[in-house]
Simulated assay, not measured.
Amino acid sequence: MFLWNLVDLERIRWEGPDALTPGKHTVTFDFKYEGLGAGTLAFNNMSGLARPGTGTLLVDGKVVDAKKMAKTLPMILQWDESFDIGSDTLTGVNDADYTPPFALTAKLNKLTIKVDRPQLSPEDIKKLETAMRNNKVSE
């Protein structure tokens, strides 16, 4: 299960149909963002929410759930929040599931976080340059 808490506005949950069997597993959450990274801010509508994306949860290479997120955050999370692995020490993601601190009872052998930079097309670059130029005029 993977749960995204969109600053208490919405929670989106990806979940496999069955509990994991005992033994080793590879669990992957893959998110494909439809924006252009930080540059997206230059042309979003500043409604407080940014471009959508699609999240896919895989177990041992097999897709167990995929959902589209209609909106994402247009900024980084606050400085005092944490990205906990193995326990949740600060704000819980969803108090209905558990309350912090919440220790992982499984053995975690490896964690890999991979962030791919967006690949911008010439049209994307032109759109960003135009939006940034327009923002400077309005400042």
Rank of each mutant, 00 (worst) to 15 (best):
F2A: 12
K107H: 10
L57I: 12
L6N: 05
L49W: 05
K110P: 05
F2Q: 05
G16K: 01
D60N: 13
D30T: 07
D65I: 05
G39Y: 12
D97P: 04
L41I: 07
P74T: 10
F29K: 12
D97Q: 12
L20Y: 09
M46C: 03
M132N: 05
P122S: 03
A106R: 13
A96W: 05
T21A: 11
G35E: 10
L90R: 15
L57P: 08
T28C: 10
P22N: 01
Q119Y: 04
V63C: 02
V27P: 13
K62L: 06
W14R: 02
V59R: 09
T26L: 11
A42G: 07
K71W: 07
P100Q: 03
A66Q: 15
N94Y: 08
V64T: 08
K126G: 01
V115M: 14
K62E: 01
K71G: 00
G86E: 14
G39I: 07
F43L: 03
T40P: 00
E15I: 07
K110T: 12
F83K: 02
Q78K: 12
I125L: 13
L120A: 02
D95F: 11
T99C: 10
D65K: 01
T112Q: 14
L6R: 09
T105E: 15
E81W: 10
K114T: 12
W14P: 01
D8E: 05
N44A: 00
Y33N: 14
R117C: 02
